[in-house]
């Protein structure tokens, strides 16, 4: 029955159409369909992140200046900044940063390359999977910091042990991400490659590796963060220069302003690495919708 039908009947019976409390008349009222969609979709909101960050700094500074936050408990951001300025002026910053970045880049690059190679092997060969996967599961959860004394014995007190710590730390998450990525490559694409007579190596290089790339890159995000965490741990022993060494020295001297400056440098490093990987993702995965 259509709306006009009902109202025609209602008026034929001498009842007023619409605006009546009777159930029959209620049917004739026109109502918009209530909206129930929307939400559950992240939208890009600019400036809110930096604003929250700035607000915290301002509150913190105000608290320190007014004495609400004791200087012993937490130095003011301005003091930490002053410590940072001194680092720049004395030229110490570049020494520390240079030493740390070198360890980070060498260790992480080696760890990533080995991790991708082993992850590919696990993904491609059942024998490698059966043999290596339990090993990876057993070794991944060991905090590499606990092995540091061993690394010192094996690789020497110099750069070797520090690079090795970062290498092992970034190796395992990469293996797991890569082998998972290989497992998730669409098998129908592999069949297609075979049906066109592509060589095994071509299939790995042109189908498996690009197909696993999203997983490898998200593994890179995780392993880069782990590498930065381990950097501080690795510089605990016998490092003269390095952001980690600087923080530890500041800590043992209770120079909390310097400690905060060092921590800020670490977190800036994390932000920059994350941004770089984001750029790499956008470039390498531009084929994704």
């Amino acid at each position: 029955m259509t709306l006009s039908d009902t109202s025609a009947k209602a008026s034929a019976r001498g009842e007023p159409a619409g605006a009546d409390a009777s159930p029959e008349a209620a049917d004739t009222r026109l109502q918009p369909v209530p909206f129930r969609g929307g939400g559950f979709r992240p939208v890009r909101v600019r400036f809110v992140g930096p604003l929250v960050f700035a607000a915290i700094l301002v509150l913190w500074e105000a608290g320190s200046q007014s004495g609400v936050i004791s200087n012993l408990v937490l130095p003011a951001p301005s003091e930490a900044f002053e410590a940072f300025r001194q680092l720049v002026e004395t030229g110490q910053l570049w020494r520390h940063l240079g030493a740390s970045l070198q360890r980070l880049i060498v260790g992480w690059t080696l760890g990533m390359s080995l991790g991708v190679a082993v992850g590919l092997m696990i993904g491609l060969f059942s024998l490698a999977r059966a043999g290596l996967m339990p090993l990876v599961s057993a070794l991944f959860p060991i905090p590499k910091i606990a092995l540091l004394p061993l690394f010192v014995i094996w690789f020497g007190i110099g750069e070797g042990s520090k690079v090795a710590t970062i290498l092992f730390g970034s190796f395992f998450p990469t293996v797991i991400a890569t082998s998972g990525g290989v497992d998730n490559v669409d098998r129908s694409l592999v069949r297609m490659g075979q049906s066109f007579g592509l060589s095994w190596w071509s299939i790995v290089r042109k189908i498996i590796l690009p197909g696993a790339m999203p997983a490898i890159l998200s593994g890179a995000r995780i392993s880069a963060s782990i590498a930065i965490i381990l950097l501080v741990a690795a510089e605990m022993i016998g490092a003269e220069y390095g952001v980690g060494a600087f923080i530890l020295m500041a800590g043992s001297l209770f120079a909390t302003d310097q400690l905060l400056a060092g921590v800020a440098i670490l977190s800036a490093m994390g932000l920059i690495v994350g941004w770089l990987i984001g750029r790499a993702e956008r470039w390498l995965l531009r084929w994704r919708s």
Binding site: S188, L189, M192, G193, F196, S202, K206, I207, P210, M213
Partner: peptide
């Protein structure tokens, strides 16, 4: 194939090129 089996990371040209490269 029914599901086309095109490599999503290659262009139209690249997808044809793939099977000629070996």
């Amino acid at each position: 194939f029914q599901d086309f089996a095109l490599l999503p990371w290659r262009t139209v040209e690249g997808n044809v090129s793939l099977v000629l490269e070996d």
